[in-house]
Design a protein around this nucleic acid. Structure first.
Lengths: 228, 228
DNA sequence: TATGATATGTCATATAAATGTCATAATTTA
DNA sequence: TAAATTATGACATTTATATGACATATCATA
């Protein structure tokens, strides 16, 4: 799922430029020309990250950041603050107000996108979907790619999600209901035992690789991905 | 990521004409009706190239170019200068002021786009639509030419753009909406499923060549061009 | 500007893949 | 060995994709 990024910037053409570049990088930009309007948007849906201009008409960026950070709902949303060079001294103030990163104008959109990714990687790794490696296994969620010893392994969607989940949480035992919740999502009128079947299918995918015995059955408890 | 191109031109209809043509060629145009406004934009975000009209109200093009070239942040941004025929003598002055290329009005949008590409090719080769080769396939966007094993392949416009996009981004999965956004442009009242049909048509074009199976369906995710 | 030729988007239907369930076999544990 | 638990193969159902046909739109050219 693409990350929703709220951009708060009063200069319309700049707002648009940032939005287009983020969009082209696979994010989902949401535009706000003022803090007031941004607040309205946030009260409907919480963005995954906010790009916030320092200077805004009405409520300014720093004030808006403070508000966000005092609100329980919004305080964990990462903020990237934009500021003009002349206000660079205010950097400390910005970071104190809760900004996670800080960019001095003028910047290239390319650089901004890079920072957005960096912040998301730190704050919400789930949204960035980084590849995972473990032993000979390499799994890239965004490309639906699984390799064992550099060789691509054919694997279906559910088995892929299942393996992804287990690899993200190595050496931890999950019972069937936990697995259903976290891999299938909450549409769980699904039978416990279905997990068994998919574990079997997953093992079949891994058969013939060096990692065929990574998924262990823990009798009476559930399943576990063994990192070693 | 597409190149961001700032157009500074006080004649609104010309500005719009240029912007539309650049957009259709895959660039991100940013509009400014005056040097003053352009400065404001630049003070926020750095474009990859600037198209600059010679005659502007207030700060004129030549003066603006000089300013850009004396500023450390902006001096490496390429500039294409636009001038009326009567001012053609000023060409030397323009180039001295730091322009990388020079166009005399009236010009055809096609020519302008060609110049933009030429300048970018020199200054930022990544941002231009060069011919692409992959396996036996050779695709030249500027000529709408597709060859497999040196033999020309008949291919329609949409299929061509689609293949171009996929070849530019090999081994990466795109879902239908991403493909619609990036191949069709933002006129997306178009049905998801239309992508399927064009993928089919594209595959039909490639049928009989050595590259007939390059386009892979990744069930539940989208499509991907396999480089190998 | 009219006309044939292309190109495009949508739909209905055909195929193919994935999913969940169940019955039964195999295993483990007490 | 019996009871409990897990593994496995088969199957019906659901879901996703491929394909052919058609109506409309666009383009080039007489």
């Amino acid at each position: 799922m693409a990350a929703n990024i709220l951009i708060v910037e009063d200069e319309e053409s700049i707002l648009e430029l940032i939005a287009i570049n983020l969009h082209q990088s696979g994010f989902n930009p949401v535009r706000a020309l003022s803090a007031e309007y941004a607040e309205k948007i946030i009260s409907n849906t919480l963005p995954d990250l906010i790009i916030l201009d320092w200077m805004l008409p009405g409520i300014d960026g720093i004030e808006f950041a403070r508000r966000l950070k005092t609100n329980k709902e919004t305080k964990s949303i990462p903020i990237i603050m934009l500021t003009a060079k002349s206000q660079e001294d205010n950097k400390v103030m910005g970071l104190e107000a809760g900004a996670d990163d800080y960019m001095t104008k003028p910047f290239s959109p390319r650089e901004l996108v890079a920072r957005v990714k960096a912040v998301l990687r730190r704050k919400a790794p789930d949204l960035v979907n980084e590849p995972i490696e473990s032993g000979h296994l390499f799994l890239d969620p965004s490309q639906h790619l699984l390799q064992s010893n550099k060789k691509t392994v054919t694997i279906g969607p559910t088995e892929f999600r299942l393996l992804h989940f287990l690899m993200k949480n190595p050496n931890i035992i999950f019972n069937r209901n936990q697995i259903l919740d976290r891999v299938w999502g909450n549409k769980s009128e699904i039978d416990d035992r279905t997990v068994d079947v998919h574990i079997k299918r997953l093992r079949d995918c891994l058969k013939g690789t060096n990692d065929h015995n990574k998924i262990e059955t823990v009798r009476g408890m559930g399943y576990r991905f063994n990192e070693n």
